[in-house]
Amino acid sequence: MGVPARALDYADSFLPGVIPQEAELTAGVRIEPGKSYGFFTDTTLCIGCKACEVACKEWNALPADDLGLKGTSYDNTGSLSANTWRHVAFVEKISGDEGTRVTEMQPFQSNWLMMSDVCKHCHNAPCLEACPTGALFRTEFDTVVVQPDICNGCGYCVPACPFGVVDLSPDDGKAHKCTLCYDRLKGGLEPACAKSCPTDSIQFGEVPDLVERAKARVVDLHAKGARNAYLYGAPDTPGATGGLGHLNAFFLLTDRPEVYNLPTAPTRAANRVEPALTAGLVTMAGLALTAAAVFALAKAGPTGPGRNGEIR
C-alpha cells in the first residue's frame, strides 16, 4: 500500500487539468504503447456493488438497457450486450444438496458468488479473426476494439465470440463491446471500471504483472483454507484453451466456470475453417469427377448424340 511518490505533486483540491499518467497514481502502472494491458478480476473480493457497471456506462455514454427486474438474485442486468460492457453476476447458493439452507460458509467467501464479467480481450480473439471489414482491430495496448465508423453490421463477430460478449446494437446497426477504455488508456488513465472498484476486485495493469499477482493471490487463498480458488483465463488455465491463448481479462473463481456462465474449455473459432473447407472441397472434387465421368459415358454410350435430336 502506501501513497505513490508522485501523488504528493498533486495535493491541491483543484487541478489545472488531467494528471499525466494518472494510472500510475491509481493503479500503479504506466500506460505505454506496445505493452499488454488487461484486467484481473478477483471474484473473492467482489461485493456486487455494480460501481463498475455504472462507471462503464457513464464514461462510455452507454444508454440504459432494460430497467425491469429479472428475479435472478440482484442481477437485473442479465448479460453483456451492445450497451452493457460490465455485468455483475450474482449466484446465491441458498440451498444445499437436499434443498436446505446452507449454514456453513466457505473460508473468505460467503455463499454468494459475485463476478464482474467483461470482454476477455483474448490473445487470439475470435471476433477480430472473424471480422471481414477490419472494424475490429488490436490496439497498441494489446486490447481488441471495434471501430464503429468501419463496422457494417454483418454480425459475424457475434456468434464468433466464445463468451457471448460482442453484440449488435439495434440502435445503430453496429457491433459494440468493451474497449478496455481505449480512450482513457491513450490519456494515461486507468479504465473506468477498475478505477471505480471499491474493493480492488477489478485490477488493471500489465498482463504479466497481473498474472503474477493473481497466482500469488491463489496461493494465499489456498493457505487461508479457500482451497477452491483457481484462475480462469490466465496462461494454461481453464478458459485459455483451444488456441485462444491467454485472456487479457482473466478471473479468479471459486466454483466451476459454468456456474458463472463461462465455458471451461472454449475454442478458437478459426480452428474450424480449414476442416470445413477441406472436407467440403474434397467432396466437391469427388462429385465433380463423378459428374465428368457420367457426362463422358453419356456422350460415348448408346444414348449418345442425336437420339433426341437436340444438337446445338
Binding site: 454480425g155 457475434v158 456468434p159 466464445p162 457471448g164 460482442v166 453484440d167 456462465n261
Partner: peptide, 8 residues
C-alpha cells in the same frame, strides 16, 4: 441464460 450470443 445463454452462454453465447446467437448470430443475427
Amino acid at each position: 441464460r445463454p452462454a453465447v450470443k446467437a448470430s443475427p
